[in-house]
Design a protein around this nucleic acid. Structure first.
Lengths: 111, 111
DNA sequence: ACTTTATTTCTATATTTGTCGAATTAATTG
DNA sequence: CAATTAATTCGACAAATATAGAAATAAAGT
């Protein structure tokens, strides 16, 4: 079931607007960034942004914390790290049968 | 425009069936794995599998090479590596303002 | 209380996606 | 060349997604 979870999180990153949000969140660090700041940086309607944020929250990638009128968005760094760890461990680990290395070409017999 | 490209690739990984395919491809290494082998391991209809494969090919994650009657699928390792590099460089690089480290909790002021 | 600012929820709509049976194409074998 | 095996393309449909205006909620300032 962990694969399903990872897939759900990757799907959220797999949208240009949300990946842009993700990037802003990473750069904002643990102090977070307000919804308004994200909106002004990405220049999209609030309702659209809200929709994307709620999706990212739903899969645990980030969370929100209100401070007065403004809502701060903060990446769940440990969740992101788990996702990266999954990709590396399940898929790209150096001790896996097939290590991902830059390979100019597959061997002639196959690809 | 690189973000759009990365998002498109992540979107393809963001589906449980395709992530399972991706995992098989990584483990198959550069010798690849046949469509039939993928199908029998995942136990899904051929047309469904074919649909997912074509999507992954479309964004450059993998390619196919025919050998007689069987088609071998091979991950484009350099493409995958580029994607990982993008995630690390643009989003999670250790020299970025915010490094991704396992953080038990955000500081009290925000999240 | 009213207004402003910040953001969400509601609602509608267009588009994309996922699924899979049936028909088709490709290659090998008898 | 008919039959078999391998895989794709076609076609149809249900479900999920993306977008965004309008209305609602939340908090603060006047």
């Amino acid at each position: 079931m962990e694969l399903e979870f990872a897939a759900a999180q990757l799907a959220e990153l797999g949208h240009s607007t949300r990946l842009a949000i993700f990037r802003l969140l990473v750069r904002a660090g643990r102090s977070g960034i307000s919804v308004g700041d994200i909106q002004s940086q990405l220049d999209i309607p609030g309702s659209t942004l809200s929709h994307h944020l709620s999706r990212m929250i739903k899969v645990g990638l980030m969370q929100q914390q209100r401070d007065g009128r403004t809502l701060f968005c903060c990446l769940n760094f440990q969740v992101v790290e788990s996702l990266m760890a999954f990709l590396v461990a399940e898929c790209c680990a150096a001790d896996n049968p097939a290590v991902i290395r830059a390979q100019p070409e597959c061997k002639s017999g196959s690809c």
